[in-house]
Design a protein around this nucleic acid. Sequence first.
DNA 1: CCTCTTAATTATCATTTGATAACTAAATTG
DNA 2: CAATTTAGTTATCAAATGATAATTAAGAGG
Lengths: 143, 143
Amino acid sequence: MNKKELFYKLVSFTAAVHRVTNELTKNAKPDSISQVQYNILEFIAVNQPVTPSEINDCQNMSMSNTSRELSKLSEKKLIEKMIDSKDRRKQYVRLSQNGEVAMKEAFAVIETRFLNRIQNASKEDLIEIELAIDTLHKKLFHP
Amino acid sequence: MNKKELFYKLVSFTAAVHRVTNELTKNAKPDSISQVQYNILEFIAVNQPVTPSEINDCQNMSMSNTSRELSKLSEKKLIEKMIDSKDRRKQYVRLSQNGEVAMKEAFAVIETRFLNRIQNASKEDLIEIELAIDTLHKKLFHP
DNA sequence: CCTCTTAATTATCATTTGATAACTAAATTG
DNA sequence: CAATTTAGTTATCAAATGATAATTAAGAGG
């Protein structure tokens, strides 16, 4: 197994991850927000508090567009912004109470589908899956 | 480790996969096509030949929009369509020669970045990574 | 203080995308 | 053979997105 083969394996694997993620999250987001907005919201949920700059970097957006989408999320009362007291140019973004509720609901839908997907997995399978996730997260998909 | 914890681990993991995929594929696609078109092209590259219907299902698009995007890719000479001789309603889509070249170039960029990402991994790490990918692909991210 | 850089905002415009409906042509079914 | 279903196309329209440029405000460094 050389690195080139590993690369092709990775391509096929990430394609599968994307497909399954699509399937699990299909229609799970609140109707009031777009897909891009949901992606941002999920990123905030997992990493909060985050700065708008971090959102650009990770979501591969331009600053201006991130700013626009954050404004929309803010208007919809799903997030809150706080200015950094040390560097007043910076902001910290987190979910508002409404945002937490909305994400909790979305995650509940996704979790149900996930449980359905692994319903036939044995205890040993689950342990193996967990270890594999840890390995890949640490050794390949680290920040 | 219960299933709920595993679910949260999965959420954080898939977020990491998406972030790294973003990073690896950033600007790797030909300038002449959109992100959605690139996604379709990559799907075709990995699974060809595919039917338009399969593309909808996996990319979570509607038939009409898939059809439009395939027409654009066809105009750009990146794909070819062939009618199934047995069922003349069906089509098989594959990369054209130009499409193969374009994807080969894109994959070369992505592979370089991937190699860079794993440059510090030991032989043992790589074996572990490969096994972990196989496990997850088979037990969690299967079709 | 003055200049430069960083973080974020606002405005604008072309393009892409998603959604819907109406349509063609080829199977399938009964 | 008529009716229905399946696979895909085409047209259209509103909304979302990407790209760019100009602007504000706050640090950082000399």
